[in-house]
Design a protein around this nucleic acid. Structure first.
Lengths: 198, 198
DNA sequence: TTATTACGATACGGTGCGGTATCGTAATCT
DNA sequence: AGATTACGATACCGCACCGTATCGTAATAA
């Protein structure tokens, strides 16, 4: 009734239970962080038995990696008409995701376990950063066509710098200014340069 | 023989034991991260009794906060003659600290617990970032005197952006390029702008 | 000296979690 | 139908840790 695959006999694995445990994993990750998270707590939150989790994952890292990987999203950055209108869309998109508890804890986990478990950083890169980096390159391309920025500007480097300042502002929230405005100001530092400096 | 204070009678608290537990805390923080660190392990590593720790700190966060706070360092940025020579000194200084296991875990801890325990971020700001931010402002001032950058350039904003890209490069190490060179390239993005755009 | 406090070491009960096993039930294949 | 596999629930053992208490010893003040 759920998964009409074929192969083996017996009751098939419940997609519902699987989704519930991934969801609970993300919730708890956001609430308490990777280290403090227990399989028992995840099972309880998801309303599934521990067995059902252990049947799928043998280690916590596998579960968490899969949970993060399950976050699929579209990165849509339609042409807003001008460089800054496009940039505002980029900032807003990032704000709605990175300012989330899950986003915070995911980043913290990546940094903390970068040495012992580089897989987390890879997943985060593949699933989150890389698509945005590609989309951002298109924004810069459009700006180049419009003559708004230097033709030689490296989109990847700009994206990394932008990501950096966003991350920084996430940890040390600006005072007397919105997160978005602050990021916009830092971005101005870069694009004042590549305007047109003949 | 250790702390010749006055007041109360009885054996005074051992400065040696105190220092040993702070040191062990930093070591273990770098090795396994905040969450996985136990008081028992700290006591064992420091060669002190658990009692001796509990007599001073009632919670792990207090101990860790104090340990991080105990890292005192001078931030010396002597005039190296040119803007880029000064900047190289800044980058090198940051590299030697942030690329350390302790530095990594400290940052991870701050991000992870930023919501539940803003004290960590505050300590990091006061003890690490703020002194560097001030020192960096002097670097920019010198560059302004030399006419190397725009007079209106905001030193704080530049510093934040620089810190951001450093943090980003810490999480996602550049490939085929040293950390320092990568940061230098990103910095070029900013200072190409404020060179002299007449 | 005596009183007082800290020390390292060890032991203790309590708790939470890991990971496995078991149970009765539910879903699916042949 | 019967075989097979997954399910949620629960119990279980073992372990690591927490936080406190206790012990004999060391260091200091009066």
């Amino acid at each position: 009734m759920k998964e009409a695959s074929s192969k083996s006999p017996g009751r098939p694995r419940s997609a519902k239970a699987h989704q519930a445990m991934l969801r609970a994993t993300l919730e708890l990750l956001g609430e308490m962080g990777y280290g403090a998270m227990s399989i028992e707590a995840i099972a309880a939150r998801a309303g599934v038995g521990k067995t059902t989790i252990y049947r799928r994952y043998s280690r916590k890292e596998e579960l968490v990696a899969d949970a993060i990987e399950s976050i699929r999203e579209e990165v849509l950055l339609p042409d807003a008409g001008s460089l800054w209108a496009d940039l505002d869309a980029v900032i807003e998109n990032a704000a709605q995701i990175s300012l989330t508890p899950i986003g915070r804890q995911a980043v913290a986990m990546i940094i903390s376990s970068a040495a012992s478990n580089p897989g987390f950083a890879q997943i985060y890169w593949d699933k989150y950063l890389e698509p945005r980096r590609t989309a951002f390159a298109r924004v810069i391309d459009r700006a180049k066509v419009r003559g708004e920025v230097d033709q030689a500007l490296d989109p990847g480097l700009v994206f990394d710098t932008l990501s950096g300042i966003m991350l920084y502002a996430l940890i040390f929230p600006p005072v007397g200014q919105s997160w978005q405005d602050y990021v916009r100001g830092a971005l101005g530092l870069i694009f004042k340069a590549s305007d047109e400096c003949p």
